[in-house]
Simulated assay, not measured.
Amino acid sequence: MTNKSEGAPRLFTVPAKPRTRTSDVLLTLIEFTNHPKVTLRSLTERFGDRTFGMLLVLVAIFSVIPFVSLIVGPLITLLGLQMAVGLTKTWLPRSVLDWQLSPEGVRTALCVFEPRVRAIERYVRPRWQFTEASF
């Protein structure tokens, strides 16, 4: 029998540095939109471990447009299934990831979205770090 302290994750550890706020990630994305080529792939790479949540919010925003939900619905289902299976990184079809997005449009959407996220962050607190340990 192996010693529990060897190789097992510690349950009550505190991260070395605090996690950046989502609103700060959005601000860096706003700066990134100064580049001439903005794709969904480039945005998802910069979201990091927040990709699932941010993509779900981003995709859900577009679902209010009539008939767009025919495309958005399966995309939300695909993301949900990936989360249910336990993937840590999103998988989307290459054609979806490589869509060329308007940098001005993305910048405008992020500028509208960022203050709302910052307002939510005043009420939402980080979860307990020990709940992220794998057993």
Results as ranks from 00 to 15, higher is better:
V124F: 01
P9G: 02
I120C: 10
T108S: 10
S134W: 05
R118T: 08
F67I: 15
R19P: 07
L79Q: 03
E114S: 01
L101N: 04
V85T: 10
T28G: 07
A16H: 11
T51E: 13
Y123F: 12
Q100C: 01
I71M: 14
I65W: 05
V14L: 11
F47Y: 14
A119S: 02
Q129H: 15
R125Y: 09
I61P: 00
K37R: 14
V117S: 02
V14N: 06
W128A: 12
Q100G: 00
R118E: 13
E31A: 10
R50H: 11
M1F: 06
T90R: 04
M83R: 12
T22I: 14
L97F: 01
L27G: 06
G105N: 05
R107P: 03
V25E: 04
L11V: 00
V59E: 03
N34E: 14
R125C: 07
S134M: 13
F47M: 12
I30M: 03
M1Q: 01
V14Q: 13
A84I: 05
L81F: 01
L92R: 08
P36R: 09
P126K: 05
A60W: 07
I76Q: 05
G73K: 09
T22A: 09
E114K: 03
T88N: 11
V117N: 08
F47Q: 08
P126S: 01
K37N: 14
S23I: 07
R118M: 04
L11R: 04
F113C: 03
E104D: 12
K4F: 06
V25M: 10
L11S: 07
V68W: 06
T2A: 15
F113D: 00
F113N: 04
H35E: 15
G86K: 12
V25H: 06
L97H: 00
P126W: 00
A8C: 11
V25C: 12
P66F: 08
L43K: 02
P115R: 00
R116D: 14
F113T: 11
A84L: 12
T131C: 12
G80V: 11
T13L: 04
V96F: 13
F135W: 14
P66G: 13
T39W: 03
E104N: 07
W99T: 09
T88M: 09
A109G: 08
A84H: 01
P74S: 08
L92G: 11
R94C: 10
S5N: 08
G48P: 09
L79K: 06
S134N: 12
A16I: 12
L56A: 02
M83T: 09
D24C: 05
L87Q: 12
E114I: 04
V117Y: 10
S69N: 15
D24S: 10
W99Q: 15
S102W: 01
D24A: 12
G7S: 12
T33K: 05
L55A: 09
V85A: 03
F32P: 06
P36K: 08
V68N: 04
L97P: 00
C111I: 10
T51P: 00
